[in-house]
Design a binder for these strands. Structure first.
Length: 542
RNA sequence: GCGGCUAUAGUUCAGCGGCAGAACGCCGGUCUGUGGCACCGGAUGUCGUGGGUUCGAACCCCACUAGCCGCCCCA
């Protein structure tokens, strides 16, 4: 136990049997998603920092202080070095004939020059002079001699000469010197490093993939789900970790695919209700709101700011600050004294244009038709910049303490364009899997620790091979089987078997030679002799 | 990032300045091819890490780390 290596703060190991519950949650989600026509998408765990800055919003807490962001190493560009060197070499070796064909796949030489004296020089561009680089050039020379029959073949290794030692000051990085045959060559051989970020959420990554792979060109509505870890550098709390898991889905597509239809909003919400019900969670409430189109929202924020100005001083300290930084959050304030004032503030519903109003009404009508219950919450505003129109949360009574939002989501009609993609309206959600599992635990929905079908107990180490072969046969037949060890006393085998399996199969000297095995069922205490040929069917009966 | 509480056996916890403890679990025995029940026996361990006070620290003090709860914020 005493070790100084531990899971880092806010991260944790998930072990059996808890992982059974995770598998159950994920299996249920996959089954529901499949029935609604969703396919799985897996995006990288890290992305260009710009993706989140532009998608999620530079001013949100997530981006401004909760991301794991770092600068990737500078990347050596072989092509840049060869270009610079060639431009220089052309003036000095004007009479050389350039042949840019590579000699063969395996050789590491990049270019072949024919010299005026009739010989040949192979040139290899590398980021630093190493034994490996030199050896591969030598083998390239050898290969060239063998295949061409030319005997006069020389090698030239070209590299930025200051590189190869760490700690080069950043200000000279873009201006390296390459010295070849005593001539210095200057140029920029390194592309600047890229800022990378561990994904704090998955919607931006999915939309990026949608744009990158031109999924809009298919003309089809894209229904994608994901299950995976996300990362935020927050203070850990119950159900809140720095590496946390989300199950989410996105419906996105070109407008002609129907992606803007209120039917899609209602379908996603109805699917979520179904998913929660199938997981055995019934005490959820769906809170619903519309934050309007991308033009409604700024108009409302302005009106809210103006309305807050005269009453600000009467609000709690938090709200006075929010009135400046994030006026929408004032609506979320839970301080009782503030409620009368908040009630007088303008509501987003009054700032929706006709189109947004009609959209929202259509969503509600479809939900009514499906019998999905919801509560309108005009104060439900969501933190991320990309949300438009429908926004929602599913809240839980049990298990989560103050972190009672189990999942949330909304429509993001402008996100693709914010990321430089085509118009691609969409709606999606993300569910906190850590919180989902907590809720399932609170509901005592623990996946009943399924016992194995059989535990094979070899009597004496001589029976081990027979026992393992028998286990293999049973496992091939789809039975869940564990096998003990011949060194165990039979009593110990029974004790272990009773804990992990429904039946014990005893393999002693008699059993191995006659092929008739002793099988005991723990629940009934019944013990019988079973021929090996009938063992599988016996074990399959409950 | 801020505040409060906590950290002792595999687990849940007691001990709060003087021999490191209980329950459950684990291992062994009663019982050499028969589990659950019973009885008997055994091992549990840098008392989160590092420093300080003291004749003496699991206990008091300081720092750090981690967990829980709340704030901020959010799924």
């Amino acid at each position: 136990m005493a070790t100084n290596l531990k899971a880092v703060r806010g991260t944790r190991d998930l072990l059996p049997p808890e992982t059974d519950l995770w598998q159950k949650a994920e299996a249920t989600a996959r089954s529901v998603f499949a029935r609604y026509g969703f396919g799985e998408v897996r995006t990288p765990i890290m992305e260009d920092t710009q993706l989140f800055a532009r998608g999620v919003g530079e001013e949100t807490d997530i981006v401004s202080k909760e991301m794991y962001t770092w600068s990737d190493r500078d990347r050596f560009e072989k092509f840049a070095l060869s270009k610079v060197w060639l431009a220089d070499a052309r003036s000095r070796y004007a009479e050389w004939t350039k042949n840019t064909q590579l000699i063969d796949e395996k050789s590491k030489a990049d270019m072949v020059f024919r010299r005026p004296d009739g010989g040949v020089t192979l040139v290899s561009f590398v980021d630093k002079a190493s034994n490996m680089a030199w050896r591969s050039l030598v083998s390239a020379i050898q290969a060239y001699r063998d295949t061409s029959g030319t005997t006069d073949v020389l090698g030239l290794l070209v590299y930025p000469e200051e590189i190869g030692s760490e700690g080069i000051p950043a200000d000279i990085r873009n201006d390296h010197t390459v010295t070849i045959d005593g001539w210095p060559v200057r140029g920029n051989f390194f592309s600047t490093s890229q800022s990378l970020t561990l994904r704090p959420e998955n919607t931006a990554g999915v939309v990026r993939a949608y744009i990158e792979h031109k999924l809009g060109e298919t003309g089809q509505l894209q229904k994608l789900f994901y299950i995976g870890p996300q990362f935020r550098r927050e203070r850990p709390q119950k159900g809140r970790y720095r590496q946390f898991y989300q199950i989410g889905a996105e419906v996105i597509g070109a407008p002609s695919s129907g992606s803007e239809s209120p039917l899609r909003d209602a379908e996603v919400l109805e699917m979520l209700a179904t998913l929660l019900n199938e997981l055995g969670i019934t005490d959820w409430t769906l809170q619903l709101n519309s934050v309007g189109s991308s033009s409604d929202r700024p108009r409302y924020v302005e009106a809210l700011k103006a309305a807050l100005q005269p009453v600000k001083a009467q609000l709690c300290a938090d709200c006075q600050r929010r009135a400046e930084t994030n006026p929408l959050r004032v609506l979320d304030c839970k301080v009782p004294e503030d409620q009368p004032i908040i009630a007088t503030l303008p509501q987003i519903a009054d700032y929706l244009d006709a189109e947004s109003k009609a959209h929202f009404a259509a969503v509600l009508a479809a939900l009514d038709a499906c019998g999905v219950e919801y509560t309108l919450n005009p104060r439900l505003v969501r933190g991320l910049d990309y949300y438009t129109r429908t926004t929602f949360e599913f809240l839980m009574e049990t298990g989560l303490g103050t972190q009672n939002a189990l999942l949330g989501g909304g429509r993001y009609d402008g996100l693709s364009e914010m990321l430089g993609g085509p118009k691609a309206p969409g709606i999606g959600f993300a569910m906190g899997e850590d919180r989902l599992v907590l809720t399932l635990q609170a509901l005592n929905a623990e996946a009943a620790a399924q016992k194995l079908d059989a535990y094979i107990a070899p009597m004496g180490e001589a029976q081990n091979p027979y026992a393992l072969a028998l286990a293999k046969e049973l496992r091939t037949a789809g039975l869940r089987v564990d096998v003990g060890d011949g060194s165990f006393r039979l009593k110990k085998s029974f004790e272990t078997a009773d804990k992990v399996a429904r039946r014990i199969v005893i393999v002693g000297e008699d059993e191995a030679s006659t092929g008739v095995l002793t099988v005991k069922t723990f629940t009934s205490g019944e013990q019988t002799k079973v021929a090996r040929a009938e063992l599988i069917s016996t074990l399959k009966t409950l």
